Amino acid sequence: MTASGSAAAAEFARRRQSPVQQLQNHLHKRPWLSPLLLLFITFVAFFIATPLFLTAGAMGTLLQQTAIVAALAVGQTLVILTAGIDLSVGAIMILSMMVMASLAKDGGMPGLLALLIGIALATLAGLLNGLLVTRINLPPFIVTLGTLSIFTAIALLYSGGSSIQAEHLPRILNFLGEGFGIGAFRLTWGIVVVVLIYAVMAFVLSQTAWGRYVYAVGDDAESARLSGVPSKRILLAVYTVAGLIYGIAGWVLIGRAGSATPNAVPTANLDSITAVVIGGTSLFGGRGRLIGTLIGALIVQTFDFGLSLIGVNQQWRVLAIGVLIVVAVAVDQWIRKVKS
């Protein structure tokens, strides 16, 4: 009788909610729904603006451009789920890319070994961020703001600020820029690698104890610690895994750009954070899904790609992304106020 009465009371409370409150509840349970709707509206709007937008060639180019931001956004999602933020994502990727390219340039080192060293260096960079956050208890914003400058400077000093073209690199470093076509629609192996990263990390977050601990630490680190969750070790692992993913993103970037340059993707940090926030992951931690992050990355690149197709200059495209960030954070704040 008690259980039946509780169910009836819950149903009565649900029926008393206004349509807006019901929408708020749905978005709280499924934070990826709102970015999915925004992505659909964006596609329709750009198709109306220019029929070239939905051609097979344009969609292939869009996916190739999205791959880099989407890869970085996976690591950024892990960090933001723990209520942190990583401003060094682009710097770690560039450092890893320049090291692996410089080591393998003109046959100086076997390509596979150079690739592994570059990815290992990115992993160590993520580990350093994690150690500073967990062992010295520095705020993630300050830590990664500092390492952003450190890793950027190291990359520039190591490479001498010069680019390395594809013809000077072994095939394994350029491999992810190769691909296969389905008619006029072309996919690269870099896109396939990024999809695999999403599949693996989505499984880890949703089906393993480690994934549940990540959400618990982000929701309330102190309560998680008191419940027996090793919060410090989870945070350290999150930053380390994020670094590993940034290193793989550096490999994808070589294939996409056809070269290794220290000035590649200057907006990587902003774009990765934007993708995560637009995708429904809360900046306050503990809530979000990788499917939302993937949709968010598509939205960021769709806006930039679509506006460039219709001739909008770079300044207005940056403005559009800024508006997206503000709106996404406002929606997140509204969703968090849901009443149970």
Score class of each variant (00 low, 15 high):
residue 7 A to W: 12
residue 135 R to D: 12
residue 205 L to P: 01
residue 81 L to F: 10
residue 7 A to Q: 15
residue 68 I to K: 03
residue 239 Y to A: 04
residue 133 V to M: 01
residue 78 L to Y: 05
residue 278 I to D: 06
residue 288 G to T: 05
residue 311 G to L: 14
residue 22 Q to M: 15
residue 48 I to N: 03
residue 16 R to Y: 12
residue 24 Q to G: 07
residue 284 F to W: 08
residue 141 F to E: 04
residue 172 I to Q: 04
residue 270 L to G: 10
residue 49 A to M: 08
residue 20 V to R: 14
residue 41 I to R: 04
residue 97 M to A: 00
residue 336 R to Q: 14
residue 229 V to R: 06
residue 340 S to Y: 12
residue 44 V to N: 07
residue 221 A to V: 06
residue 331 V to L: 11
residue 163 S to L: 08
residue 169 L to S: 02
residue 130 G to L: 08
residue 237 A to R: 10
residue 36 L to E: 07
residue 122 A to M: 12
residue 325 I to C: 04
residue 33 L to D: 05
residue 328 A to V: 06
residue 329 V to S: 04
residue 131 L to V: 08
residue 177 G to Q: 04
residue 33 L to M: 14
residue 68 I to C: 11
residue 200 V to H: 11
residue 148 L to H: 15
residue 44 V to R: 02
residue 184 A to I: 06
residue 332 D to K: 02
residue 61 T to Y: 13
residue 69 V to A: 09
residue 62 L to H: 12
residue 48 I to S: 05
residue 89 V to I: 13
residue 297 A to P: 00
residue 274 T to A: 08
residue 183 G to D: 05
residue 38 L to E: 06
residue 59 M to L: 11
residue 197 I to G: 01
residue 67 A to Y: 01
residue 289 R to P: 04
residue 88 S to P: 03
residue 185 F to Q: 07
residue 244 L to Y: 14
residue 194 V to D: 03
residue 99 V to G: 10
residue 319 L to P: 10
residue 119 I to Y: 09
residue 90 G to S: 07
residue 177 G to L: 06
residue 339 K to P: 13
residue 92 I to K: 05
residue 210 W to R: 15
residue 94 I to T: 14
residue 217 V to F: 09
residue 309 L to G: 03
residue 188 T to A: 07
residue 251 W to G: 03
residue 227 S to K: 00
residue 151 F to E: 00
residue 278 I to V: 08
residue 142 I to M: 06
residue 53 F to Y: 08
residue 210 W to D: 12
residue 138 L to V: 00
residue 298 L to H: 05
residue 137 N to M: 14
residue 138 L to N: 01
residue 243 G to I: 07
residue 179 G to I: 13
residue 6 S to K: 14
residue 256 R to T: 13
residue 65 Q to E: 13
residue 87 L to N: 04
residue 284 F to P: 13
residue 231 S to M: 13
residue 162 S to L: 11
residue 89 V to S: 06
residue 272 S to L: 01
residue 274 T to M: 10
residue 96 S to V: 02
residue 222 E to H: 13
residue 78 L to A: 02
residue 38 L to H: 10
residue 16 R to V: 11
residue 97 M to H: 05
residue 97 M to I: 11
residue 251 W to L: 09
residue 188 T to W: 02
residue 144 T to F: 06
residue 125 A to M: 08
residue 325 I to M: 12
residue 310 I to Q: 01
residue 140 P to Q: 06
